[in-house]
Amino acid sequence: MQLKVLIIEDNFIIQMFLESIITDMGHEVANTVDNSEDALDFIEANKPNLILLDIGISGSRDGIETSQIIYEKYKIPVIFITGNSDESTLERAKKTKPIHIIHKPIDDHKLKSEFAGIFEKLNITS
């Protein structure tokens, strides 16, 4: 199954890196956005299958608040990507029920390995 993945990340270099890995694995990058408002507008109109979401995005809501809306309204699986490892932030993030949290820095081997486990959880072959 080919996934349609939305990337919500405000670092352009990381956006490009994630896009490359996802397409190399045979999945489609539906869009990349850098803030909550654009993300929620895109989700409403396009319903991606999976969302990669940076906790520290720009805009009026952080990634955790955005994930809570996605969980409650759309039930689309979310994978957090974060450079923040403080316990209180991670606990807030876990309350939104992400399917996984990927910690920065990441390289292509680590990311592909993490995706393999995530796809297994979702019963998807990559």
Rank of each mutant, 00 (worst) to 15 (best):
L40I: 07
L40R: 03
L40D: 08
D41L: 14
D41S: 14
F42R: 08
I43C: 05
I43V: 13
I43G: 06
E44N: 14
E44A: 15
E44Q: 15
A45P: 00
A45V: 08
N46W: 11
N46K: 12
N46T: 10
K47S: 14
K47F: 12
P48T: 00
P48A: 01
P48W: 08
N49E: 05
N49F: 00
N49V: 04
L50C: 07
L50I: 04
L50Q: 00
L50Y: 08
I51Y: 06
I51V: 15
I51L: 05
I51D: 03
I51F: 05
I51C: 08
L53H: 01
L53D: 00
D54W: 02
D54H: 06
D54K: 09
D54A: 09
I55F: 01
I55Q: 03
G56E: 14
G56R: 13
G56N: 15
G56S: 14
G56M: 11
G56P: 06
I57T: 11
I57Q: 09
I57G: 11
I57M: 11
S58I: 14
S58V: 13
G59K: 06
G59R: 03
S60T: 14
S60I: 15
R61I: 12
R61S: 14
R61V: 11
R61E: 15
R61Y: 15
R61C: 13
D62E: 04
D62C: 10
D62T: 01
G63N: 07
G63A: 00
G63C: 08
I64P: 03
I64T: 05
I64Y: 02
I64M: 03
E65L: 11
E65N: 12
E65M: 13
T66Q: 03
T66C: 01
T66M: 02
S67K: 08
S67M: 00
Q68N: 13
Q68R: 13
Q68H: 12
I69K: 09
I69P: 09
I69E: 11
I70T: 09
Y71F: 12
Y71I: 06
E72Y: 12
E72F: 11
K73A: 10
K73G: 07
K73L: 11
Y74D: 05
Y74S: 02
K75Q: 14
K75I: 01
K75C: 05
I76T: 13
P77H: 02
P77S: 00
V78I: 09
I79L: 11
F80E: 03
F80K: 05
F80T: 00
F80G: 04
I81E: 01
I81T: 10
I81K: 02
